[in-house]
Structures are given as C-alpha cells and as structure tokens.
Design a protein around this nucleic acid. Structure first.
Length: 366
DNA sequence: AACACGTGGAG
DNA sequence: TCTCCAAGTGT
C-alpha cells in the first residue's frame, strides 16, 4: 500500500485536441519560404516534397533564422531534385559552408542521387520508404510524409518532445523519456491535416511552449496541460547535466601569396568538417593530454609570423583555441601536393567552415 | 547506447 | 563571458 501522495492528484483536465491546435495554427502559423500555408492548401496548392525535404534537412539542429538564406540559395540554384543530383559535390559543399553539420550536405547529395537513380526523380511517399534514404531519419521521414504526402505519421522533434513532455507531465529525464513521449505524441496525431498538425506543434514549441519562460497564457493547449497545472512546465523535459567540454589546441598556417591568394587543402571526407576546405595546419590535441606538441612546420617557405592571441571556436563537444600563423609567400610559388592557391576573390566562395573563415580573416588583418 | 557532429543567437 | 541550445542522423 502506498502512502498518500504529498500533493493531491491533479484534477481531471480536458484532453488536448488536435483540432484546437490546428485552429490556433490557422490563425498564428509562421510564414516560411518552404511552407504552404493553410489558405494556399485550401486553394489546392500542395507542398513540393523536394522543398519540404531540403528544408527539413537544413533545419536539423539548426535555427529557422540560419536556414532561410541557405534555403533560398539552394532552391534558386537547384530548383528540382534532379538539379541537385547533377550538381558537383564540391559546389554543394561550398553552398552549404557555414551551415554546419557537414555530413548533412554529403547525405543530401547522396539522397538526391538515389532519388533520381532509384526512384526516377520522385520522392517515396511513405515515412517507411523515406527513412531508408541517406540523411533521413525517423523525424525527417515522418515530417516529409506528413507535410508533403498527408500521411498520419507521428512527427517528433525537439519541439514536440518539449510540448508533449509538458502536456502529459512526463518527468522521466531525457533521453530515457523518448519512447513515452513518442507514444503520447502518437495519441495526439490526427488523421486529417497531419502535416499542419506537425507544423503547428513545432510552431507552438518554437514560439509559445519555449524552453525557458513558456507563454502559457497564449497556449491553445493550456487548459489541457498537466505540467502547467502542476506548475512544473518550465522544468520539463528534464535533462541530465552536460559533461564539461574539453579544450583542444592547434596551429593553422594562413599562407598569403604576393597576389593575395590563400593556400588551401581538402579535409578528409568523413569526420569533423569532413570534405570541407581549410588552410593547412596541425592536428588539434586536448590540452594536458600528455601528448607532445606537434612541430608546427609551415607548409611553404616564407616570412611567417604568429598572430597575437588565438582564434577561439566552440564545437558541440570541444572548444578549440587555434594559433594562427600568417605567412607572406613570394609571387609565383607553387602550391604543395594536395593544396591549391585560392585567389583572393575566390576565398569567400570556398567550402570553408566558419572556423577557418575566422582564421583567414584574422590573418588578413580584417 | 552513447557519442560524434557546427554554428550563431539568446539570455 | 558563458551556458544553452535549434525542425536529428549515423555509427
């Protein structure tokens, strides 16, 4: 027999209804470049699976604000999946540069090629088939199926996890709570307008049911929300504390030839910043790991100076302090094997991750 | 299952 | 300054 709980069980709350959320969405949805709004759908316009897919991949772990310009650039340059499939890998990596998580760009290209080669340029229409494609996991498969093909798929992203954890007052910490959250989310998913429902839930999480200081007074599901009733909405979903980020250090050599060209090379195809371009440099080692510092040997003879200070850059799982060496190289010097000189006017268009743009800017004295 | 994998904006 | 994190996926 259990003792009486210290807090009385919450009074019965009305169930959350998909219809209430969709009604809210019809009035408050955000207008986004990849979205076909309710009014346009009512007029018979359907979402283009290519644009849905492209936007969903770009939005993985990335903010709407950061994605917008990239989405516009990609769709202007490659309007159909066939166009993207036919594009050179290097051009896609250049266009993706700065958006982060570069395996997404590699998988994007591979996925486009597969859709053309295996599916005749038509996107598969079910979440199950979509999930077989590179770069498309459970979330993206469900989102495309629901938004582009009207499948009543359960779409669970970080927003949905937060909204559902609060709505059902799921106090189990993440990620252990994921299965319970998914089950609860499945009970909400409607047979009609599943795509709008998914986007509505994500909009709700992005604008009302935010991680900090949720605007419960404006929430269409406020009366149904168990976490709100218990006063614990802002504390959900619970998460374990994150591990401290180690610090790594390294050196990069920004060789600037007399004509202003910058010496670059390609990173290995996989792993951190895989397939992207960079100025040559040392490996990055964890501070205090006991490993000897690499001899920082410049890639070319020239007049090398160490920049004052370092370029700092924080990745998901470590922090980097990058020492930058600036080298003045004589005119006409050839690039070493595996390297190339990028003309001063071409550097901006290279497949350079943000970190190296910072380093090059510092070396140029920008 | 747990970790690798970017970036820039918000508080 | 610094922590958190944003429409996850692959291994």
């Amino acid at each position: 027999m259990t003792s009486p709980s210290p807090t009385p069980p919450p009074a019965a709350l009305p169930p959350a209804s998909a219809a209430d959320l969709i009604a809210w969405y019809d009035r408050h949805h955000r207008r986004l470049p990849w979205r076909v709004g309710p009014a346009e759908q009512a007029a018979g316009r359907r979402a283009d699976p290519y644009r849905v897919w492209l936007s969903e991949v770009m939005l993985q772990q990335t903010t709407v604000a950061a994605v917008k310009a990239y989405f516009e650039a990609f769709t202007a340059r490659w309007p159909r999946v066939e166009d993207l499939a036919a594009a050179p890998d290097e051009e896609v990596m250049k266009a993706w540069a700065g958006l982060g998580y570069y395996s997404r760009a590699r998988n994007l290209k591979a996925c486009a090629e597969r859709i053309v080669a295996v599916h005749g340029g038509r996107f598969p229409e079910t979440a199950a088939e979509l999930a077989d494609l590179p770069g498309i996991g459970p979330y993206t498969a469900a989102a495309i199926a629901a938004i582009a093909f009207d499948e009543a798929a359960t779409v669970v992203d970080g927003n949905v996890e937060r909204v559902v954890a609060r709505l059902f007052a799921i106090e189990e910490p993440m990620p252990a709570a994921k299965p319970a959250i998914r089950k609860a989310a499945a009970t909400l998913t409607p047979a009609t307008r599943p795509g709008d429902f998914a986007q509505a839930t994500m909009d709700l999480g992005a604008t009302i049911c935010t991680p900090r200081k949720p605007a419960c007074a404006l929430c269409p599901w406020a009366s149904a929300c168990r976490a709100r009733a218990q006063g614990i909405a802002e504390t959900l979903p619970r998460r374990a504390a994150k591990a401290a980020r180690p610090i790594r250090t390294g050196t990069c050599f920004v060789a600037i030839r007399a004509d202003g060209s910058i010496l670059l090379r390609r990173r290995p195809p996989k792993g951190l910043l895989g397939g992207m371009s960079e100025p040559p440099g040392t490996v990055w080692r964890v501070v205090g790991s006991g490993a000897a510092e690499d001899a920082a040997t410049p890639p070319l003879a020239g007049r090398w100076r160490r920049l004052i200070g370092t370029v700092a850059h924080t990745f998901t799982h470590f922090h980097l302090e990058l020492t930058v060496m600036r080298g003045e190289i004589a005119a006409g010097v050839a690039a070493p094997e595996g390297h190339w000189w990028s003309a001063a006017s071409a550097v901006d268009g290279e497949a350079l991750p943000s970190l190296f743009r910072k380093a090059i800017a510092a070396a140029r004295g920008d």
